[in-house]
Design a binder for these strands. Structure first.
Lengths: 339, 339
DNA sequence: TTGTAAGCGTTATCAG
DNA sequence: CTGATAACGCTTACAA
């Protein structure tokens, strides 16, 4: 079928070796020769056969993105970031969902889908206790993790403790003292982010000697509905909070709805702050701690590429990189000016 | 490095050919032999080298998903659907973003990234006039399209005309006669869905001889903000509509916000209906025409697999498959019962 | 049913 | 700087 490197070699009057070298931009090729080869190749509309190249070189030219979700906001945003980096590097990006809805029985194990097909792995927010994580790590290939830390691999995260401190601290600076927490818990306490953000909240509360009423902590399961029922519970108490820190914007959306249902106005009657800067946050006027989600994907991708380039695929210098977060004040904490 | 098919063959006391046949589940292999080979292979923790297999067989065992967006709701949902199908078929899914933010100059053209690396292509909602579309189609490989029709290839879509008719018709059935349209236009009139939905709206309006006041048609650019300013414009008229059909839920969200800003209540003062059944629609109590987004991806994936299996990669029997939509009545059209 | 052996299209190692 | 040529690891007629 396709035209091969031999055809190009013949047409250019050189050996296949030279064609290979010329096309890949290797040194040790005469400038004129290279130009001629490239020209001929282009004229013949020739592209290298990846399969053959891979077999001969041992490099697959692709990376796997392993993720428990594809369509959820955080995940799709991270994937998009990683994809843009891989695209520039001419690396293929293999999408691999390991979500638990894929009945764990009778499915091809992720490791089988990874071995010998990719040069490196990008793991997106797999909770530490996910059964798929360890087998993948044991593959011993260049790996970078996003939104979660695992010893031995490079990780890209935000400082969840700091983010939560920033959020809680902002409410304090606004004069609030009865500050409630809508946490993740159960469903997604699995993600490390949850416990870290809880720590941040606690530390600020303690720092300012504020009431840490257990009644002020509810679980929102990281969902809108969870946030709504959580806020319901908080409002139905005898002594409701004047401000609420929701661990995620989506839970904050739910909380806002609850407030409105109760005839209350966010930012006036009760202040609310979240974490994410979800695309719909500005719509709700939600004050939040923005995290650079797409950037996490990009940075992680770049890191993986470096790891693949250099021979430091050794986990020797594995480190955790924290990307910056930023407070975005909107009306839900009373800053009417920001709408 | 890795252990090869020869090692397995030796360990099992058979030829490499037999190992290959046994592992791939081909017929013409003694049951006992197959079992033994499988056992040995498993014991050796052996997996076929895709590169070698691809080179020898000519099949790449992977498909490309070409999409202009990765993180947007519709697209990520479609991708997730396709991924689940490919995963079951043990096919690699290569993610390829061709969004226009990827500076069209100085980037590797999609065709170069596709040729010789995949067996088939899944194109997600590339508007007909996208400059990348034709080159890709000219590749002449098995291709399936989602959310857009192109002659010569199998397409999976919803019946946009019917969906719009359903939406508009529902408003009519509720007794409305001054029904406004928030369309996509400019920014995304590029997507065929836009013009189709406009046709549906028009046909119903004409059918019931309702006012088709040009003032009742505004553009919302398929964004929340666009929907909001569109609704603003509608409300500022001397004779505002009593009901609004927004071509997408996100534009409807914007419209709802506009209503509230104007002190109006959706479903009571003005009725609103969208298309999508976006995850946040229930939150807003938005009545909408649900479309099976993930299913579009799944069905298209299955179709592509069939096309790859059979030799009917010929575009001879290319057809457009329409997936069903469904009206979901909520409070934004007055059905208080549905919240 | 099983084995033999000729590719598949590059890359990489040596010489030259 | 360039050219032979042996791998790379598997698939697949063709034989047996």
């Amino acid at each position: 079928m396709g035209i091969t490197i031999r055809d190009v070699a013949a047409a250019a009057g050189v050996s296949t070796a030279t064609v290979s070298r010329a096309l890949r931009g290797l040194p040790n090729v005469d400038h004129a020769t290279r130009d001629r080869v490239k020209e001929v190749a282009a004229g013949l509309d020739f592209v290298i056969s990846p399969s053959a190249s891979r077999l001969a070189s041992g490099r697959t030219g692709s990376v796997a993105v392993v993720t428990p979700h594809i369509a959820r906001w955080f995940f799709s945003e991270v994937i998009a970031g990683a994809e843009s980096v891989m695209q520039h590097a001419d690396m293929d990006l293999l999408l691999m969902n390991v979500g638990e809805h894929q009945s764990r029985v009778s499915r091809i194990p992720p490791t089988a889908r990874i071995r010998r097909r990719v040069d490196g792995i990008l793991i997106v927010a797999l909770p530490p206790q996910d059964p798929d994580l360890e087998p993948i790590m044991n593959l011993g290939m260049p790996t970078v993790m996003i939104g979660g830390a695992t010893p031995g691999v490079n990780c890209f995260v935000i400082d969840d403790v700091a983010a939560a401190r920033k959020a809680t601290g902002y409410l304090v600076s606004l004069g609030h003292s009865r500050i409630a927490l809508i946490s993740g818990k159960s469903a997604a306490a699995r993600f490390t982010a949850g416990s870290q953000r809880e720590r941040g909240y606690r530390s600020v509360m303690a720092e300012f000697s504020l009431v840490e009423d257990p009644m002020l902590e509810v679980s929102g399961h990281f969902t809108i509905e969870g946030g709504e029922s959580g806020m319901d519970a908080l409002l139905n108490q005898s002594n409701p909070p004047t401000a609420v820190f929701a661990m995620s914007d989506e839970m904050a959306f739910g909380a806002i709805r609850s407030l409105r249902t109760h005839g209350l106005e966010p930012g006036r009657d009760v202040s609310i702050i979240g974490i994410d800067n979800h695309p719909m946050s500005s719509y709700f006027g939600l004050t939040t701690i923005a995290q650079p989600v797409a950037d996490l994907g990009k940075k992680a991708g770049e890191c993986l590429l470096e790891q693949l380039a250099g021979s430091d695929s050794l986990s020797s210098n594995a480190r955790v990189t924290q990307l910056p977060t930023e407070l975005i004040a909107r009306s839900s904490t009373g800053a009417k000016d920001f709408a």
